[in-house]
Design a protein around this nucleic acid. Structure first.
Length: 409
RNA sequence: CUGGGUGUAGCGCAGUUGGUAGCGCGCAGCGUUCGGGACGCUGAGGUCGCCUGUUCAAGUCAGGUCACCCAGACCA
């Protein structure tokens, strides 16, 4: 991508209405644009980050048999009435609207109802199970208070996976597969060392559910953990009977702030029963399908990663998340000429700062945007037939021959 | 929703006892610069969040309203 062609312009000052450092940097560096409280646009660089995060999640979910779909955001109230989740008294985060032809619609806050209903057309037999379906989709939740930039918004991108099974054993089996997949996902996202499976309240059918909590100061949840972090629990289940279940003592627990970056639930019959998702089993008996659901907030994860990987100069993306691996910054006419040659054919790997700016401005933008490697070509480096590669994270620079660099791209 | 705070140019801000709006950055043009956001000159850009009121006169005073931020509450 050429910066000279990009409509992005970096800002020297963060808008004063953003206090989360991730949001400040993401806006200053031109990754996101704020429309209103809790509503953000993703600009070219931000979209690439989102796609990179999705790519990691997609890869791991495909490994455990997930089939990707994309479901509608607009929701039919009838389905939600069947599960008693249309009533504003029961679910208070709905965005609802009216059809001009008459009747109501809702903007999906989650997708258990439609996917369960949709699968009634396709899932008829035990032979059709198990099944795992997921999507990356925009959810709408009318939160009382949006905050912390893209960490808590009213419109956000979520990965939601739903699994369908003939038995509780098979649901348990798959649940563990998802746990393993999630561990790999958070590792690959660079959050593995501070993200923990956490006990949380489970709703009607199970005593607990699991959340994935990333320990980070801007997180809005309070969680408690024992020293080795083998047990982490949400404040909402900090009760004596729970502590007994988990085999930990209150005075062994430490408190910290954390951001919920995912959750997994065993739904069992919660939605399949009222919506009538049933199959014929081996004995031709009609059975209700067991379900599980598993979420990851993609856009929130982006905020959490930005929050973790930054310094006083800006963002510091991990290589596999960064929108580009290299920030190519030529200095002077000769440098520009060689840079053009290097850029050609590597447009997807290189963010090419071909703007007619002074070096200092290019360096500052490279750092603000958090591109992993800054590649400078100037008369100085050309004298050595080299480019200078600076690691954003460590700040270390080295001269690498032009040929060698071309190969390494 | 409760409490606190803030709305003036794209962004960050100033604006005195009410007298018709200014600074920095950014933007446009010209010139000098060119390895850490350089400089000079010229210029464009504003119904001062919105409504109502007080007044000869409101960015400034009063009432209302909307938006945004923070803390809390809430949160499959």
């Amino acid at each position: 991508m050429r910066l000279s062609n990009s409509f992005i312009k970096t800002l020297r000052d963060a808008p004063k209405d953003e206090t989360a450092k991730s949001a400040g940097f993401l806006i200053r560096a031109g990754y996101i644009y704020k429309e209103m409280a809790g509503v953000y646009d993703y600009l070219p660089l931000g979209l690439k980050v989102i796609e990179n995060i999705k790519g990691i999640v997609r890869d791991e979910l495909n490994k455990i048999g997930g089939q990707e779909v994309l479901m509608a955001a607009l929701q039919n109230p009838e389905l939600w009435k069947k599960t008693d989740r249309w009533d504003d008294q029961k679910v208070d985060i709905w965005f609802k609207t009216e059809l001009s032809a008459g009747g109501e619609l809702g903007l999906a806050p989650t997708h258990e109802e439609p996917i369960t209903n949709m699968l009634k057309t396709y899932v008829k037999s035990y032979k059709d199970l198990p099944l795992a379906v997921y999507q990356f989709q925009t959810k709408f939740r009318n939160e009382l208070r949006a905050k912390s930039g893209i960490m808590r918004t009213r419109e956000f991108i979520m990965k939601d996976l739903y699994s369908f099974h003939t038995s509780e054993e098979d649901l348990d089996r798959y649940y563990h597969e998802v746990e393993n997949a999630y561990a790999r996902i958070y590792d690959r996202l660079g959050l593995g060392d501070i993200t923990f499976e956490t006990f949380a309240s489970g709703g009607v059918f199970s005593k607990y559910s699991h959340e994935y909590q990333t320990f980070i100061p801007v997180g809005e949840d309070t969680v408690y953990y024992n020293k080795d972090k083998s047990v982490v629990l949400n404040e909402e289940v900090l009760q004596d009977d729970v502590l007994e279940d988990l085999g930990v003592k209150r005075d062994e627990l430490e408190e910290t702030r954390a951001a919920e970056v995912g959750n997994i639930f065993k739904l069992k019959f919660k939605y399949s029963e009222p919506l009538g998702l049933k199959i014929s089993d081996e004995n031709n008996e009609i059975k209700t399908v067991y379900m599980g659901c598993y979420g990851i907030g993609i856009s929130r994860v982006m905020g959490v990663i930005a929050e973790k990987f930054c310094d006083d100069k800006g963002l510091v993306w991990p290589e596999n998340i960064a929108p580009f691996k290299f920030y190519l910054a030529p200095i002077g006419e000769n440098g520009s000429k060689i840079a053009e040659e290097i850029y050609l054919g590597n447009e997807d790997k290189i963010l090419f700062d071909d703007r007619a700016l002074r070096p200092g401005e290019k360096f500052a933008d490279a750092e603000l945007m958090g591109i992993p490697f800054r590649v400078v070509i100037s008369d100085k480096t050309l004298a050595e037939n080299s480019v200078e590669i600076t690691n954003r994270k460590t700040g270390e620079s080295e001269l690498v021959s032009i040929e060698e660099f071309k190969k390494s791209i």
